[in-house]
């Protein structure tokens, strides 16, 4: 399960290694910790008010801001879509949903390209892929 395992029933079982731990499980927690940094930083630097295309473009001339935005884009999509995948997976009958991984991965890939195109538009004052 993506968010919290329902099969752990006692404090003792938490401390044993009998529960299989998947990479998806570990990466969900790791990306969550990354988000504390990336999303915290994003909210801090954006300042919310008096923004404009010029302000964003000037902010994005700094490599730290670029890294923050690209890191946030990738980690938030991994974390959010992996969580979403877990919820849908649970609603499907056992053994079903092999397609789900591909569908969610595809959606993630499209969204990363979408987000990068927005950043590209701020960098070069026109998008790589135009609407």
């Amino acid at each position: 399960m993506a968010a919290e395992s329902p099969i752990k029933t006692s404090p003792e079982s938490e401390k044993t290694s009998s529960t299989p731990v998947s990479w998806a499980w570990i990466l969900q927690r790791f990306s969550g910790l990354l988000l504390l940094v990336f999303l915290g930083g994003h909210l801090w630097v954006e300042h919310f008010m008096n923004t404009s295309a010029a302000v964003v473009a000037s902010r994005l001339t700094h490599v730290v801001d670029d890294s923050l935005d690209i890191g946030l884009l990738i980690s938030v999509l991994y974390h959010g879509l992996n969580g979403f995948r877990g919820i849908i997976q649970e609603m499907l009958p056992e053994g079903r949903g092999a397609w789900l991984n591909y569908a969610v991965f595809g959606l993630g890939l499209i969204t990363v390209v979408w987000g990068l195109d927005i950043l590209w538009a701020f960098w070069y004052h026109q998008p790589f892929l135009t609407l």
Binding site: V76, L77, G80, W114, G115, I118, F122, H125, P127
Partner: peptide, 24 residues
């Protein structure tokens, strides 16, 4: 988590104003 994921896509839609002709 689902609400935040929904907001993320709303956020991208609004930012996509920059992708329009005379995006700024």
């Amino acid at each position: 988590g689902l609400l935040i994921l929904g907001y993320l896509y709303l956020h991208l839609v609004l930012l996509s104003a920059i992708l329009l002709p005379s995006g700024a």
